[in-house]
Design a protein around this nucleic acid. Structure first.
Lengths: 117, 117
DNA sequence: TTCACGTGTCAGAACTTTCTTACACATGAA
DNA sequence: TTCATGTGTAAGAAAGTTCTGACACGTGAA
């Protein structure tokens, strides 16, 4: 089944995660090959491992990919990633809906909790 | 009719334009009220006019809204904006397709290299 | 021990985005 | 003229993103 519709904030995070050519490539690559581990994927795409690590984190935080740390036969820890099941529909109407669940614009002038000491 | 499917680069630009709560609000507001001019929209949303101007530019460049400069009855130049007709479908499969039309990663050196698994 | 492979993280440079404040120009009405 | 309305742009601060080049840790094999 398809996952539930994201909140406005979640949608922004997903869009931000996808709004980058490198991350789009990463998702596409995982979509094609099914799953892969970090070092190999970095070689495949042609970027440094720390850089890929950063992008994978962003994609995973947005819920677009999922990772799992596994042990290979020769005892190495390997982190595999695959694409999550997502399906976003973006039109003026759906965006208007999502905006309704967006965190209100920063108004820390108002009386809220204990902000500072 | 629905507009043609964007290239990878265009898609990235559209996603980047939407990946911002303020711009999402702008699109939503225009979707609801139909059309509006810059100064009024700024008051409506509660941000400065120069700031709105910048966001509108970004949205228009991405093809998500369209603007037209008109003359009011009392002779003032007024720039009206409305949402464009867009309808994006984002899933692992459609993203993989879009990536195929993405500008190749910056390779001002050696030519492409056969990748191996 | 050393090497080849895997994992992760940190610091800083370079760049981009976001936002404010200030300026310039136009019009019609008082 | 001055005020209130509309348009646009530019400079610079602040914050965020992207990327490289170390570093630290693990394993199994030579």
């Amino acid at each position: 089944m398809t996952p539930r519709r994201p909140t406005g904030d979640e949608l922004v995070e997903m869009l931000a995660a996808l709004a980058n050519p490198l991350r789009l490539r990463i998702v596409a690559q995982l979509a094609v090959v099914g799953r892969d581990y970090v070092s190999h994927l970095a070689r495949e795409i042609g970027i440094s491992r720390p850089l890929l690590h950063m992008h994978l984190q962003r994609l995973e935080a947005a819920g677009l990919i999922v990772g799992s740390l596994e042990l290979s036969e020769d005892g190495k820890a390997m982190k595999f990633f695959e694409v999550a099941d997502f399906d976003l529909h973006l039109s003026a109407a759906t965006l208007a809906e999502a905006v309704a669940t967006l965190t209100p614009p920063d108004s820390d002038k108002g009386p809220s909790h204990k902000e500072r000491s």
